[in-house]
Design a protein around this nucleic acid. Structure first.
Lengths: 143, 143
DNA sequence: TCTAGATAAATTGTATGCAATATATTTATT
DNA sequence: AATAAATATATTGCATACAATTTATCTAGA
């Protein structure tokens, strides 16, 4: 009478809710980011730049887990929007990406976004911390 | 002496570990799926088809949280690989997607993948369940 | 019955992601 | 100094994602 556990049932896979929840959360950010002229991926790059002010493409990539194939065109877009500028380093293999004044000013407009996202979610602080910790544990183990 | 909490620090955002962990986990699946001729997204669609045998594009889309813009070309690829076939329904606005014999056989080769992924991760059953539950909670709240 | 919505799927356009390759530059070795 | 290996970034090719539009078909009301 008891059904055998099916490992291939969508609902029995941990990967799927993680994959779907991540996509859904990114989509939730987009209406808040659109007025700033940013996509979600551009936003996480800006988070790094607001903190670092200057960084090489590699340094940004390690921080956000993206490679040059994704970052090169994305950084060009942020440069053409005026939020970043790109210069060669002494070692001219490097490109140094730097925050512009316009990029710095954008920070103020982004500051309230995390709270606005958090507000409309019914997560306790403990649940959020648990999810955060387990995601980082997953990230460390699989990447 | 105490630094103010910065909501825009990458490490202070819940979205980032979720986004990065999901991408990393998907990448972890790909070497196991490549011999079967599937990408990760194609795999989750096959999970639905192994369970359902027949479904409309919309039904698949609701299940995997993807729209026709993603599914139409993806289903065409699975049809051209011989795993699925597509027929018109009575109401010819619908396309009915059905599992082929070859698609059915592929199931056996996929059966061990979830365990192989799980094995190389140091997650307790409780941690996995907690992560699973919180991701579904997130998904239900933001989508 | 005729036609205005409604519905399902496909198409278009833009932006990722990432593997693999190419290019440019630097460093190490002879 | 000449060149092989290493390094940083850019480019290419393929596969998503998803909003917005289009196409095809169906249904309900005049």
């Amino acid at each position: 009478m008891q059904g055998k556990f099916d490992p291939l049932l969508l609902e029995n896979q941990l990967c799927f809710p993680l994959y779907a929840a991540a996509k859904a959360l990114v989509r939730r950010y987009e209406p808040f980011l659109e007025p700033l002229g940013l996509t979600y991926t551009q936003y996480i790059v800006m988070l790094v730049m607001w903190e670092r002010k200057v960084a090489s493409v590699n340094e940004i990539g390690e921080r956000v887990h993206l490679d040059s194939g994704t970052l090169s065109p994305l950084l060009n877009k942020l440069v053409s929007k005026g939020f970043l500028e790109k210069t060669k380093g002494e070692d001219s293999r490097f490109r140094f990406i730097a925050l512009t004044k316009s990029g710095e000013e954008l920070r103020k407009r982004a500051e309230s976004i995390p709270m606005q996202i958090g507000c409309c979610m019914d997560f306790t602080q403990e649940e959020a911390t648990t999810l955060y910790t387990l995601c980082y544990k997953m990230l460390n183990q699989v990447s």
